[in-house]
Computed example of a mutant assay.
Amino acid sequence: MGILDQNIDYDRPVKLADGIFWVGFADLEGRLQCNPYLIVDGDEAILIDGGSRPDFSTVMRKVLQTGVSPKQISHLIYQHYDPDLCGSIPNLESLIDSADLRIISHAENNPFIRHYSVRSELMCIDGLERKLTLRSGRTLRFFRTPYAHSAGSFITYDETSGILFTSDLFGSSGAFSDWRLFADFDHKCLACEAAWPERPDEPCEDIGTPCPWSGMHYFHRKVMPGNRHLRHAMAVIKSIGATMVAPQHGSILYRVEDIDAAIERLQGMEDIGIDGIADAALVSG
C-alpha cells in the first residue's frame, strides 16, 4: 500500500513508516501548520519538535493513540528553540514524569530552551557525537544546519526508515484551506521555471491551485537569515540522500523526485532574509 493509499484521518496519528507517526494538529484555519513527529522503537519512544503549549493536548492524545504511554518517551529532540516547537516542554515533562527523560538539542539552543522552565537534563548533539543510538541499536543521526534559521539549528535522520526530519527547512505557509500532510506535486510543478507568484495563495494558471513552490519560497524568504545559510543547509541535505523529508511546517515530501526538485528550487533563491531586503533597498535607492 502506498503512503497516499491510507485513509488519512487528521484527528488521529498518521503513520509515515514502521514506528514513525505524525502527531500534529491540522490547523486548516491558521497560517502556520506545525508537525511534531513520534518515533516508536520497541518499548522506547522519541518525540521530535513536540509542539506549542496550545497544541499539547492534541499532540499527547495522538501519542496515546499510537499505543505509547508517556513513560516510554525517553528523549525529546528540539532542532531549534522557537515556541512552536518547545512551548509544551513543561506539559510533557509533567506527564512523562521521569528522572531519566533527556532533552536533546544543541549548545547554541540550550540557553534559550532553559527559559521554558526545563527540569530535565539538556544534552548537546556534539556531546553525543551527533547521533542517538536507541536500545534496539536503531540510530538517529544529527546534522548541523547553522543559521537555518538559528545558530544551533540541526536536522535529524532516521537510518532505519530513510526519513529526514528537517524542522523549518522545506517549510511552507499560506493556502491552508488546501493543506495536505503529504505534498502531491503535479509533474508540471517539478519542471516549472516560472517566476514566483507574489502571494502564496495565488492560483497557478497551469494547475488551477496555489503554486506549491510559492508557499515554500514565501516561508523561507521570511524565516531564513540569508541566501548563503540556506544554500549550505541544502548542500548538507543533498549529501544525506533521504527518501522522505518531514518538515515541521507545511507538507511532507515523500518522493525522491520532489525532494530533489525542492532542493534545487531552494538553492536557487536569491532574495532570502537580509539578501532580499538589501536588494530591495538597492533598487529603491
Rank of each mutant, 00 (worst) to 15 (best):
L253K: 03
I46Q: 06
N35I: 04
D100Y: 11
I103F: 08
P90T: 02
Q33H: 11
L4W: 11
A278N: 14
R255W: 09
C124N: 14
T133I: 13
G226V: 01
V68Y: 01
S161L: 02
I277R: 12
Y116F: 09
A233K: 05
D275T: 00
A233E: 13
Y37H: 14
I48E: 06
I263Y: 10
E193A: 07
E193Y: 08
H80V: 00
D206H: 11
E29W: 03
A246F: 02
S94W: 06
G208A: 04
H75F: 03
T209S: 15
D168L: 01
I163M: 06
P90A: 01
G273D: 15
P83H: 03
H249Y: 08
I73Q: 03
N227G: 04
A246T: 09
L101H: 06
A262W: 10
R199D: 02
E202N: 09
E108T: 01
S239F: 06
R114T: 15
L140A: 01
L64V: 09
C86R: 03
N35W: 00
S98E: 08
A191K: 15
L95I: 14
G226W: 13
E44I: 04
N109H: 03
L134N: 04
E270P: 14
V283L: 14
E93N: 07
R135T: 15
I207N: 10
G87I: 03
D158N: 02
I252W: 01
M224P: 06
S177F: 13
G162C: 04
L134F: 03
A280Y: 14
G127W: 06
